[in-house]
Amino acid sequence: MQTQDWLFVGIFIVLAPLFPLIALLIPRLIAPRKPNPIKLETYECGMETVGPAWVQFKVQYYIFALIFLVFDIEMVFLYPWAVSLNLLPFYAVVEGIIFVAILVAGLLYAWRNGALKWA
């Protein structure tokens, strides 16, 4: 049964991009195509663009992504624990709580240091 379900998911993943692809190909046949340099310019509310689109970003984006990565890995560890919880003895729950508590310490550290502040 499992194999068949994965087959369904696999075919779905292969077919899903085809539907939007077809929808994008139809305008190629029927939509007008009259490009000119002014039409193709980058839109900036009618102003002429100055400099490259590559603007400098704050380091905050990177830090949030790092914190997210840590929590993402934590969640992947916790999911098997959550699924098998009812088959496990009581101390397993305590272990899970310790696991989370250690990470909450990290969150608190980030909080205290102002790394969670968008400024």
Binding site: I26, P27, R28, I30, A31, P32, R33, K34, P35, P37, K39, L40, E41, T42, Y43, A53
Partner: peptide, 12 residues
């Protein structure tokens, strides 16, 4: 309407 709109790919 969306299908017959011109498809623009900006410069760059």
């Amino acid at each position: 309407k969306l299908l017959i709109k011109e498809d623009i790919t900006p410069i760059g």
